[in-house]
Design a protein around this nucleic acid. Structure first.
Length: 246
DNA sequence: CGAATTTGACCGGCGC
DNA sequence: GCGCCGGTCAAATTCG
C-alpha cells in the first residue's frame, strides 16, 4: 500500500568477529548486493555522538526504495552492487565526519578483495600460532569437531539493520533455511540460512529487532566463492563485479 | 516426486 | 560439573 515508501533507513552496519573487533577496525569497506529497487544515498554528514563503548563507530547511511513494494518480492530484478560500508574506521566518539560521495559509487574502479577477511583473521591470530591450518575460511564441521581443545574459529560476520516488512532481502543469492530458533528476550524467532551453492559455506541469519519489530537484522557469515545465482544472465557490468562478492 | 521448510533433538561453549 | 543457550542436524512434513 505504501507507495514510494522510504522503507530502509539508517541501517547500522556492524562487523563482528569472535576474536575481537579489530577486524572491523581494519576493514576498509565492503560490498554487498541489494535489489535494484533500492537506491542508495548518503547522508550529508554524520555526527557521531555515541558513547565511547563501541570500539568503532558504525557507518551511517540511508537506503530508499523507489518502487511500490508489493509483498512478493520477485527476484528477477537486477541487483545493484552497493557499497555498504565505507569509512568504517576506528573513530573517536563524538567525532563528526562525512562520506565522500565517490565512495558510494566507485564500484567499478575499486579493486577486488577490499574485504580481506581471511587475511585479517590470520593476521590477528598468527601472533601465537604458526600453523594456520585451521584458520582458513571454510572449515568444515568435521574439522571443527576434530580440533577439540583448540580454539574454535568462526568466520567473520557482518550484519546490518534495515527497516523492512519482508524478512529476507533478496541479495541475489539462493538460500536454504536450515534452522529457526527463538532467542532469549526476543519475541521473534531467528532464522538460519545457508547458501545453496555447492561448496559455498556462507550462512546468514535473519531476525527482527525486539525493540522495533519493523527492523530486520541480517547477519552474514563468510564469503561466497561464486557469483550471485541468477536465473537469467544479466548485465555485463555485473559479471566482472561479482567475482569478489560473498 | 524432488526440493525446500519445519521443528524437536542434539551438540558444544560458557558462566556459575 | 551442570544447566543454559545459541547454533546445527535431520527426520518429518509441506511445497511446487
Amino acid at each position: 500500500m505504501g507507495s514510494k515508501s522510504q522503507v530502509l533507513l539508517n541501517p547500522q552496519a556492524l562487523f563482528e568477529d569472535h576474536q575481537d573487533h579489530e577486524v572491523a577496525a581494519n576493514s576498509q569497506m565492503g560490498f554487498f548486493n541489494f535489489p535494484s529497487n533500492l537506491t542508495f544515498f548518503q547522508l550529508p554528514s554524520i555526527h557521531q555522538t555515541h558513547s565511547p563503548s563501541p570500539p568503532f563507530d558504525p557507518p551511517n547511511f540511508s537506503i530508499s526504495s523507489n518502487n511500490t513494494t508489493n509483498n512478493n518480492n520477485n527476484s528477477n530484478s537486477n541487483l545493484n552492487e552497493t557499497l555498504l560500508s565505507s569509512s568504517l574506521l576506528p573513530l573517536k566518539p563524538s567525532l563528526s565526519y562525512e562520506f565522500a560521495p565517490q565512495h558510494l559509487l566507485s564500484l567499478q574502479t575499486s579493486t577486488p578483495n577490499l574485504w580481506p577477511w581471511g587475511e585479517i583473521g590470520e593476521k590477528l591470530m598468527n601472533g601465537k600460532r604458526s600453523n594456520n591450518e585451521n584458520h582458513q575460511l571454510g572449515v568444515s564441521t568435521m574439522k571443527m569437531k576434530k580440533m577439540k581443545g583448540r580454539r574454535k574459529v568462526r568466520e567473520p560476520r557482518f550484519s546490518f539493520k534495515t527497516m523492512s516488512d519482508v524478512d529476507v532481502l533478496d541479495d541475489g543469492y539462493k538460500w536454504r533455511k536450515y534452522g529457526q530458533k527463538v532467542v532469549k528476550n526476543t519475541q521473534h524467532p531467528r532464522s538460519y540460512y545457508r547458501c545453496t551453492q555447492d561448496h559455498c559455506r556462507v550462512k546468514k541469519r535473519v531476525e527482527r529487532l525486539a525493540e522495533d519489530p519493523r527492523m530486520v537484522i541480517t547477519t552474514y557469515e563468510g564469503r561466497h566463492v561464486h557469483s550471485p545465482s541468477h536465473d537469467s544472465e544479466d548485465s555485463e557490468a555485473q559479471t566482472h563485479l561479482n567475482n569478489f562478492f560473498w
